[in-house]
């Protein structure tokens, strides 16, 4: 193995350790950490890592977080497993709460006052549960607080969720009477 190849291998190992082992509350790693640990050619290293992850159904994604690039590994495409309570990743009601919050924000141009989002979630969850779900989504980066205090789509949602697919699936799953009711209503 040439010296360059050996160096690349070493850097791929370092990058994968940074990306896979969560050291902060949220997944992913900032550009500065990659630059510090892997080196200035970290993008080439991430590309090489991405090619290897492809066969496992995973991919390296870049997303903007607080104006800076952040990198994380996600499942490539949709998760191959069926959703079931024992999956252990996120509770079913948390998934539903997140779907509701994201759908509400999508329907309101990407931002809405916290009280309105909370009130929307209270349609399906008790007030206290709605509050705690939203607090969790904020903490996990699925939602963000904008400058004016409005809820906005978070960096993690941008990395993980296909919002147009979510909207399409919600509308197509709804009973026909609900989805066709007042279809000409303007946005």
């Amino acid at each position: 193995m040439s010296e360059d190849k050996a160096k690349l291998e070493e850097k791929i190992k370092k990058a994968s350790q940074l990306l896979f082992l969560r050291r902060h509350r949220n997944p992913g790693v900032g550009e500065w950490e990659l630059r510090k640990v892997v080196g200035s050619d970290y993008r080439a290293v991430l590309k090489a890592l991405d090619e290897r992850l492809d066969s496992l159904g995973l991919t390296v994604k870049e997303v903007e977080h607080e104006g800076k690039p952040r990198f994380l590994v996600t499942v490539k495409g949709r998760p191959p497993l069926e959703l079931e309570p024992g999956l252990g990743w996120m509770r079913v009601d948390s998934l539903a709460g997140l779907a509701m919050a994201l759908a509400f924000l999508t329907a309101h141009g990407g931002r809405a006052p916290p009280a309105e989002v909370e009130s929307f979630l209270e349609g399906k969850f008790p007030k206290r549960r709605a509050k705690s779900l939203l607090a969790g989504f904020l903490e996990e980066g699925y939602l963000e607080l904008g400058k004016g205090g409005a809820y906005e789509i978070g960096w993690r949602t941008k990395a993980e969720v296909d919002l147009s697919e979510l909207a399409r699936r919600i509308i197509s799953s709804a009973p026909r009477s609900a989805s066709s009711e007042n279809p000409s209503q303007p946005p």
């Binding site: 998760p79 699936r169 919600i170």
Partner: peptide, 12 residues
């Protein structure tokens, strides 16, 4: 709703 999100998400 959970199912709709599950089919639209690529979890980290």
């Amino acid at each position: 709703l959970a199912s709709a999100l599950w089919q639209s998400i690529s979890p980290s």
